[in-house]
């Protein structure tokens, strides 16, 4: 009876957050950026994406943001795109002010709970996903971790080839980037 009750309760709950694992395709989404443009994750196809969920009230997030600014400067030319998603109740203006104060040089999108659910629910912040050029998740970092550790994950994401070029590369047996 307990078992039946458990199953009944499970199925009557709201849809559960997606469970993502390494090498899962990163779910696409569409969110408004601070400058009012609609941005999709797929707009960055072919780039390695560091997708960072954060909030203005999150102290550890504040520590990471200057690192992300540095990484965007250092690895942007190699194909890294950092994308911040603000999971905040604060106004767009306040989020913009915060980002400006932090010297953010990458797009900040206004998050929605539904997008958080696509990425497993985001129970705590910061939470960061490293997405390879082929659109697959290569790493997930929950909470504040060391800068060097994040940089290693960025390098790993950069050392992948876009999905479209994978087929042609294997046809031609030419690799310009080391393959995982």
């Amino acid at each position: 009876m307990l078992y039946v009750g458990y199953h009944k309760a499970r199925h009557s709950e709201r849809p559960r957050a997606a469970r993502l694992t390494q090498s899962s395709p990163a779910p696409d989404f569409s969110l408004e950026s601070l400058d009012g443009k609609t941005t999709r994750l797929s707009d960055f196809r072919g780039k390695a994406v560091l997708l960072n969920f954060w909030a203005t009230w999150c102290g550890p997030c504040k520590i990471e943001m200057p690192w992300f600014v540095d990484f965007q400067k250092q690895y942007g030319s190699q194909g890294l795109q950092i994308v911040g998603v603000a999971m905040d109740d604060a106004s767009k203006e306040d989020i913009g002010k915060f980002a400006k104060d932090m010297g953010v040089n990458y797009p900040i999108l206004i998050g929605k709970e539904a997008v958080g659910d696509q990425y497993g629910g985001i129970p705590g912040l910061p939470e960061t996903f490293l997405i390879a050029r082929d659109g697959k998740i290569v790493d997930k970092i929950i909470g504040l971790r060391g800068k060097a550790e994040i940089e290693d994950a960025i390098k790993e994401a950069l050392n992948t080839r876009p999905a479209a070029s994978q087929a042609s590369a294997s046809d031609n047996a030419v690799t310009s980037q080391p393959q995982k």
Binding site: A55, C58, G59, P60, L125, I142, G143, L144
Partner: peptide, 12 residues
């Protein structure tokens, strides 16, 4: 309230 631990913060 809004809680944090040593490495992460949780929604209000």
């Amino acid at each position: 309230y809004q809680a944090c631990d040593n490495a992460a913060c949780y929604p209000p």
